[in-house]
Simulated assay, not measured.
Amino acid sequence: MPDDQPCRPIALPAASAPPRTKPSNYPEPFFSRMAGREKRPLGDLFGLRNFGVNLTRLVPGGESALLHRHSRQDEFVYILEGEPTLVTDQGEVALSPGHCAGFPAGGVAHQLVNRTGRDVVYLEIGDRTPGDEGSYPHDDLQATLGPDGKWIFTHKDGQPY
């Protein structure tokens, strides 16, 4: 391995991966809504650049994200534990372990919420297509993926947070 490459694991138990240090990139008043979510960025541990994989836990009352859709990014979730509700702009679907759902770019707005008394654990997978934008039908928020790979959040009228 070249000296400039970080030492990365070949394999590890997913639950032992460190959680993300910052629970959300959203600005307030949305940041605090993500307090019931814990993400373990598995793909980053292995140096994956084309897509991300997170092991995500939602405590009772937790939300995966604000109701949103991506302009360029496809997303996929696979439920491992618990019974979340998939909320979309077309209705709601009860999920349980073994269920999966996919969201093509530009499609249905979506989020997972935990309305039960038990934790929900799932894998989320999304690509990292440059130029992606996020839209939020129920919130005064829009997001643009910057050239550095970080999200830039503004109000829907373009004013910064």
Rank of each mutant, 00 (worst) to 15 (best):
K22W: 00
G61M: 05
A14R: 04
F31H: 15
G102N: 01
Q111I: 02
F103H: 04
P84G: 02
P147V: 14
C100P: 04
E81M: 07
G149F: 14
T21M: 03
L141E: 03
Y122E: 10
L55M: 12
V108W: 06
Y78M: 10
P130I: 04
L55C: 08
G126E: 15
G52I: 00
H70F: 01
K150V: 09
L80K: 03
T154W: 09
D4Y: 15
A101D: 11
R128S: 12
H138N: 13
Y26H: 11
R69K: 07
A15C: 00
P137N: 03
N50D: 10
L55Q: 08
M1E: 10
D3I: 08
D44H: 11
N54S: 10
Y161F: 15
R118T: 12
P13I: 03
Y136Q: 04
T85Y: 03
L145Y: 10
I125P: 00
P160W: 12
G47N: 06
V113Q: 15
I79D: 00
E75I: 06
P13M: 13
Q90V: 04
L112P: 00
F30S: 02
F51M: 07
D3W: 09
G158I: 03
L141V: 15
P147D: 13
G149S: 02
P13N: 13
R72S: 04
H68T: 07
G43Q: 07
P9M: 09
D74E: 13
A94H: 01
D139R: 04
A109Y: 05
V77S: 02
Y78L: 15
L55T: 00
V53M: 14
R69H: 11
S71F: 11
C100G: 12
F153T: 01
H70R: 11
R20K: 13
L42A: 07
L80R: 13
G131E: 13
G126A: 08
M34K: 03
R8L: 14
P13L: 10
T129L: 15
H70N: 01
P97W: 12
H110I: 09
A35V: 08
D157K: 05
N114R: 10
Q5H: 05
D157L: 06
T21Q: 06
E124Y: 08
E81N: 03
S64V: 08
F103G: 02
E28M: 00
S16R: 13
R8T: 04
G107Q: 05
A101I: 01
N114L: 04
D3P: 07
R40N: 06
H155P: 09
L123F: 11
T56W: 03
P13Y: 10
P137E: 06
G149Y: 01
L45N: 09
P160F: 07
R128N: 11
F153P: 03
T129W: 12
S24T: 10
E92P: 00
A15T: 10
P18L: 14
P9F: 12
E83N: 11
F153R: 14
P27R: 12
R20Q: 14
A65T: 13
L12M: 14
G82L: 05
S24Q: 01
N50F: 07
A105F: 13
F76C: 02
G36M: 05
E28Q: 10
P29T: 07
V53W: 05
L86H: 00
D74W: 09
L58Q: 06
L48V: 14
G131F: 04
